[in-house]
């Protein structure tokens, strides 16, 4: 079955993966980290169609309610189905099962063929993910919330607010007990 050509959201997703993964260095972008980046970009209006949906997912060694829009999930799958992203599941010493993606060579070739990096949209994405010193921000999954930090100059960095859902707030709607 021939896959459809990726739309702008899907191209943007692929572009972000191309920035954060490398085939030669066997480097993948872990899914929670990816969600932090895409949530941040959504907040910067890069993905205007994405909404604030929640997902129960691994956040380091905890299970947290965190952001994942279902359209984003579908978009990632569409990019994968085109063969532009490869998926890895890694088992490390402390983490049982890490889900990560890497931009494939055909993914890099596709971005090059459409000249995506030169587009205004790509420039915007890169600007949001780049520190003043010119290096890409790294993801730091702190216990109380993720941060995007610059490992190079170590001066700039910021918390990505709203990514983790705080379930401790009381239920705001009136309710009564329900049983199984």
């Amino acid at each position: 079955m021939k896959e459809q050509k990726p739309d702008q959201d899907q191209q943007s997703i692929l572009y972000v993966y191309s920035l954060y993964s490398s085939f030669s260095e066997v480097k993948y972008l872990q899914y929670t980290g990816a969600l932090v980046i895409f949530f941040y970009l959504m907040k910067q209006n890069i993905f205007p169609d994405y909404r604030e949906h929640l997902l129960i997912y691994d956040y380091k060694d905890t299970r947290r309610f965190l952001w994942e829009d279902k359209k984003f999930m579908t978009d990632v799958n569409a990019v994968r189905n085109n063969g532009f992203l490869s998926r890895a599941r890694l088992r490390a010493q402390n983490y049982r099962d890490m889900n990560a993606h890497q931009c494939t060579q055909s993914g890099f070739d596709f971005l090059k063929s459409i000249g995506f990096e030169k587009t205004e949209h790509a420039q915007k994405i890169k600007k949001h993910l780049t520190c003043g010193c010119g290096k890409l921000y790294s993801i730091d999954l702190k216990d109380n919330g993720p941060q995007l930090i610059c490992k190079h100059c170590k001066k700039s960095g910021f918390e990505v607010k709203g990514f983790l859902f705080n379930p401790n707030q009381p239920v705001s709607h009136p309710f009564k007990p329900a049983f199984i």
């Binding site: 949906h53 929640l54 129960i56 859902f165 379930p167 009136p174 309710f175 009564k176 007990p177 199984i180």
Partner: peptide, 24 residues
């Protein structure tokens, strides 16, 4: 199980938030 019946109309996103609160 820990459960509640809401006395209002809710969207899917709101329901997910409540499942998070109940799980917690």
């Amino acid at each position: 199980g820990l459960g509640i019946t809401l006395e209002t109309k809710l969207r899917a996103e709101d329901i997910k938030v409540l499942t998070g609160k109940l799980s917690d």
